[in-house]
Amino acid sequence: MICQECNQRPATLHFTKIVNGEKTEIHLCEQCAHEKGEMFMFPHQGAFSINNLIAGLLNMDASLKEQKAPSFHSEHVLQCERCKMTYAQFVKVGRFGCANCYETFAHYLPPVFRRLHGGHVAHEGKIPKRVGGTLYIRKQIGQLKHVLQDLIVKEQFEKAAEVRDQIRELETKLKAEGGASHE
């Protein structure tokens, strides 16, 4: 097989790229592969194709394709005021520019997340102790309330009383911390 880049030397390196089920084969000689850069020499994760895939997902929302703005405000471009990333740029690179972008583009995110994460749109995992603030306590209370309901249904009242006390304790803690954080 001849190298498809220079059409002279025999191809010694063969790459198969599969993007969206579409298979592309590339056959190169050592020299051309080297000129094409290190990218080919490494077993890469293919950041390239992943990027394009996400961009494809973000673009699926037809209403965004033309960047239609409200008619009375025709100059309006959706842009993150912190890092200056526009929605069009976000769609193109498939990466957020900063934490604030999540708020700026909030309206468009749920459908994208749903597609990427098997229908999920909300975090169910770890809560950082410091930054999460009272969220950790609030989630704990929520969980305990479920436990309490369960115990009442099962008529295990002694255990239920214990859980009720735990909830009360957490609620007092929540009040104290909530007060502190508003100072």
């Binding site: 992943i50 990466r95 957020f96 749109v121 909300a122 975090h123 770890k126 950082p128 930054v131 999460g132």
Partner: peptide, 14 residues
């Protein structure tokens, strides 16, 4: 960078 709804905010939505 942490959000109540979305959790830990990352560069890539994946």
């Amino acid at each position: 960078a942490y959000d109540e709804k979305y959790g830990y905010l990352t560069s890539c939505p994946t």
